[in-house]
Amino acid sequence: MSDSTPSVTLLTRDGCGLCAVALEQLRPICADFGIEVAIVDVDEAAATDPALRAEYGDRLPVVLLNGREHSYFDVDEARLRADLSR
């Protein structure tokens, strides 16, 4: 891994069942790499970043790795672990 710590963000919204499942999948993966999952509710963020909800709001949950889309709907565990290992 590089000197900089990677960031994993889950884009979600209140009441999203798939989002809850994705978070439960992400927590142990990220824990293995010593990082916390950041959670961003796109509806709450819309007040300051409406583009976020416009871009991702219809296909949640979305996993961002270092601010870039990594996967959506499902957590691609094997790919995420491989990318976090780099």
Rank of each mutant, 00 (worst) to 15 (best):
D74G: 00
C30M: 02
F33E: 12
G34T: 10
Y72D: 01
C19I: 06
S71F: 06
L23E: 08
A47E: 08
D76E: 01
D43L: 10
E77I: 13
L26W: 06
A46D: 09
D41I: 04
G34I: 11
L23C: 00
Q25L: 01
A45L: 00
P28A: 08
C30V: 02
E24N: 15
V63N: 02
E24Y: 03
P6M: 14
D83I: 12
L52S: 04
Y56W: 14
G17Q: 14
S2Y: 06
C16P: 11
D74V: 00
D14A: 12
R81T: 10
E44A: 05
V8E: 02
R79K: 10
V40Q: 09
P50Y: 01
R27A: 13
A78K: 13
D14L: 10
Y56V: 05
C30T: 04
D43Q: 11
L84Q: 12
D43S: 06
L80S: 03
C19M: 09
E24M: 14
L65M: 08
A31Y: 00
L65R: 12
L80P: 04
D76W: 00
A51R: 09
V37D: 05
L26A: 09
E55I: 06
S4C: 05
V63W: 01
V8C: 05
S4V: 12
I39M: 11
C30I: 03
P6K: 12
